[in-house]
Computed example of a mutant assay.
Amino acid sequence: MKASRWMLSVALLPLAACHQSTQQAAPAVSDTPVAVASSPKSTGRFEPPPESSIPNDDFGKQIALGRQIFIDTGHYAKAYVGNQLNCENCHLDAGRLAHSAPLWGAYPMYPAYRSKNHHVNTFAERLQGCFQYSMNGKAPPLGDDVLVALEAYAYWMSKGEPIGVASPGHGYLKLPQPAQAPDYARGEAVFKRDCAMCHGDNGQGQQVVDRTVFPPLWGPQSYNWGAGMERLDNAAGFIKANMPLGRGNTLTDQDAWDVAYFMNAHERPQDPRFKSSVEETRKAYHDTPDSLYGVKVNGKVLGEGIAGQ
């Protein structure tokens, strides 16, 4: 998804990660500003504190470590990551950007019951799930330094926000159902036009000196079939609000649905909850029109996973 020279230079900074816009509250990319958390006076949207306000004490060290883990997960949480993604790939601008599931939107909503695992989850348990599914790795044990630092970062970012209230921009953008059913061929055309420059013609992203600059969208180094981004509604909402990077809200809703379909119509690592068959696993965990797991696309049933996974 087309990036300016400015974005490519940012991506090469030591702590930069794929899809990182900037470390300021209101960055700009080329001539078009990124859709970031606006002033509460104008939108009513919560505005997280700037990085410069992280306290200079022992608690601040944990906050800063949480931020480092968030934007360079493969380095700072290597033992728990199984692919080339960083937390920031789905939660942009170091977890600050509205409509990209920002940390300040998630933290105040826990503990909460989740139908995904049928019990009340703490925020730490929610983070465990991110490692297991989106990072295709393993869950850090509760109390692990990685989870403590990430929770400290999320807590600091959310200070002053109402508890249990879904603030505007707290998750992914919710798009209306498309006028036409999402289509692979149309999605492929959108991908070639708007996405391949950054993510590659084969969707495997780009790395510079072993650092992910733009993430793989399918295949062995992407999120697995248990991740939230495998749902078409989540992927379409994220794409509509944020992609192409720096030019969010420029694709039509139909384009966003179509390219989300194209992206998720490719094979990826198996759902860790796999049962005896793809059919049984779909019935248990993916029985929704928003999941392509177990669906035949281009003559192949998706969900077999990647060889060797």
Results as ranks from 00 to 15, higher is better:
residue 20 Q to N: 15
residue 181 A to L: 02
residue 232 L to T: 07
residue 8 L to Q: 10
residue 174 K to E: 04
residue 158 S to L: 04
residue 305 G to Y: 05
residue 114 R to E: 11
residue 255 D to E: 15
residue 136 N to G: 03
residue 80 Y to F: 15
residue 44 G to F: 07
residue 270 Q to A: 14
residue 238 F to L: 06
residue 27 P to T: 13
residue 81 V to S: 11
residue 214 F to H: 10
residue 183 D to M: 05
residue 149 A to T: 10
residue 110 Y to F: 15
residue 70 F to Y: 11
residue 31 D to A: 08
residue 81 V to A: 08
residue 44 G to K: 05
residue 80 Y to S: 02
residue 105 G to V: 10
residue 223 Y to S: 15
residue 59 F to R: 02
residue 154 A to I: 04
residue 307 A to I: 02
residue 197 M to H: 10
residue 146 V to N: 01
residue 94 A to Q: 01
residue 163 I to W: 10
residue 23 Q to N: 14
residue 174 K to R: 10
residue 96 R to S: 05
residue 5 R to Q: 09
residue 236 A to V: 12
residue 128 Q to I: 01
residue 36 V to L: 02
residue 281 T to F: 06
residue 290 D to F: 15
residue 119 H to W: 07
residue 284 A to R: 11
residue 2 K to T: 14
residue 98 A to R: 10
residue 84 Q to C: 06
residue 289 P to W: 09
residue 252 T to G: 12
residue 102 P to L: 03
residue 138 K to Q: 12
residue 270 Q to Y: 05
residue 217 L to E: 03
residue 33 P to I: 09
residue 99 H to G: 01
residue 284 A to G: 02
residue 98 A to S: 12
residue 126 R to K: 11
residue 136 N to A: 14
residue 100 S to P: 00
residue 24 Q to V: 13
residue 186 R to S: 14
residue 227 A to Q: 13
residue 235 A to G: 00
residue 201 D to S: 06
residue 104 W to M: 01
residue 55 P to W: 06
residue 23 Q to Y: 13
residue 104 W to P: 02
residue 99 H to T: 05
residue 141 P to W: 00
residue 199 H to G: 07
residue 176 P to A: 02
residue 151 E to T: 15
residue 190 V to A: 07
residue 154 A to Q: 03
residue 236 A to D: 06
residue 309 Q to I: 11
residue 13 L to G: 09
residue 12 L to A: 12
residue 45 R to Y: 11
residue 152 A to P: 01
residue 92 L to P: 05
residue 110 Y to K: 03
residue 176 P to H: 01
residue 52 S to E: 14
residue 95 G to L: 04
residue 240 K to G: 02
residue 52 S to M: 05
residue 241 A to V: 08
residue 278 V to L: 08
residue 262 F to E: 09
residue 133 Y to R: 09
residue 209 V to G: 00
residue 162 P to Q: 14
residue 299 G to R: 08
residue 37 A to H: 12
residue 3 A to W: 13
residue 171 G to P: 05
residue 45 R to H: 09
residue 46 F to E: 06
residue 253 D to L: 03
residue 278 V to N: 03
residue 308 G to I: 04
residue 282 R to I: 07
residue 265 A to N: 04
residue 293 Y to P: 08
residue 30 S to K: 05
residue 84 Q to N: 13
residue 16 A to Y: 06
residue 133 Y to T: 12
residue 304 E to T: 05
residue 91 H to T: 07
residue 19 H to L: 15
residue 284 A to M: 11
residue 141 P to L: 01
residue 216 P to D: 01
residue 237 G to Y: 10
residue 307 A to S: 08
residue 146 V to L: 00
residue 50 P to K: 13
residue 52 S to Q: 13
residue 67 R to Y: 03
residue 166 A to M: 15
residue 105 G to T: 10
residue 267 E to C: 04
residue 263 M to G: 00
residue 233 D to P: 13
residue 27 P to L: 08
residue 226 G to D: 05
residue 79 A to P: 03
residue 103 L to D: 07
residue 220 P to M: 04
residue 97 L to T: 14
residue 87 C to T: 12
residue 58 D to L: 11
residue 8 L to C: 06
residue 268 R to D: 02
